[in-house]
Write a protein that binds this DNA or RNA. Structure first.
Lengths: 138, 138
DNA sequence: TTGCGTGCAAAGGTTTTGCATGGCA
DNA sequence: TGCCATGCAAAACCTTTGCACGCAA
């Protein structure tokens, strides 16, 4: 199915610029809707979902599925920054539910190790590391 | 939240033995309900969901989220095998669905690194590494 | 003008929850 | 006996879809 955008619409532009302004932050579809409603310029929720899906298909946005019980998270992909800083991983705290964005060279190295020694190509976009954060591990 | 089981019930036993019998197969909560209904010994769907959640917390079962739009998959984890081999990680191939049990010192080291440098205590029982296996990455 | 994008409302399907009953230890 | 587990129904939840209208090219 080809969901790539063919038209450039106002909604698409402001959605993209909002995602960019949030940077590496994790945003749900509902967050997006609430934000624009508060701004006094609401976007229909189906538009938000459809545009986000398109942006994911285009590779401009990543989608993370944390759990069945929580909504999907989206985040803008800064391709330039990704090349500079390396790969991002995601840690989910089983205690407080917090999602942590992690840039870690050692984890990046592990990907190479898994590849060469275990013949497994890790997909950091899909993988979520579960555990306990600093506050919750007491 | 502590959801580990305290009582041993009939439903828990037959659910576990069913999961074991399926081995590496992918099972949804609905599959479980349908199976026991066909067997003439139905289990309430809320019981199925609650028991599966407990089993995941205990590390006896892994939970896989394929997509937001499709139900979660469950799969029995051979706990004895993992105990024997030490710290065991699980890699799930996104291509063929194969579950790979991995004993890897480098991955174990990463746990220490995450602990000390990122203050995150990784839970290898709960965490599933997604990616592509040797056969599928061509 | 053509056809995609939008937005509203409603549907869809999975998972959770309230509450009374039943079962384990 | 004291809790925990069960099961039913209903709710909650996120996400998708149908359809008429609006807008980009």
């Amino acid at each position: 199915m080809d969901t790539r955008s063919k038209y450039r619409t106002k909604q698409r532009d402001i959605l993209l610029s909002y995602l960019r302004s949030v940077g590496g932050g994790h945003i749900t579809a509902n967050d997006v809707c609430s934000y624009f409603k508060e701004q006094g310029a609401p976007i229909g929720q189906s538009t938000v979902y459809r545009q986000l899906e398109s942006l994911v298909d285009e590779g401009l946005v990543n989608k993370y599925i944390i759990d069945t019980n929580s909504p999907a998270c989206f985040e803008y992909v800064d391709h330039d920054m990704c090349q500079r800083d390396g790969i991002c991983f995601h840690c989910k705290c089983e205690g407080c539910g917090k999602l942590i964005h992690l840039k870690c060279d050692e984890l990046s190295d592990i990907m190479g190790h898994l590849n060469e020694e275990h013949h497994f190509t890790l997909d950091p976009k899909r993988t979520v590391l579960y555990g306990l954060c600093e506050d919750c591990r007491k």
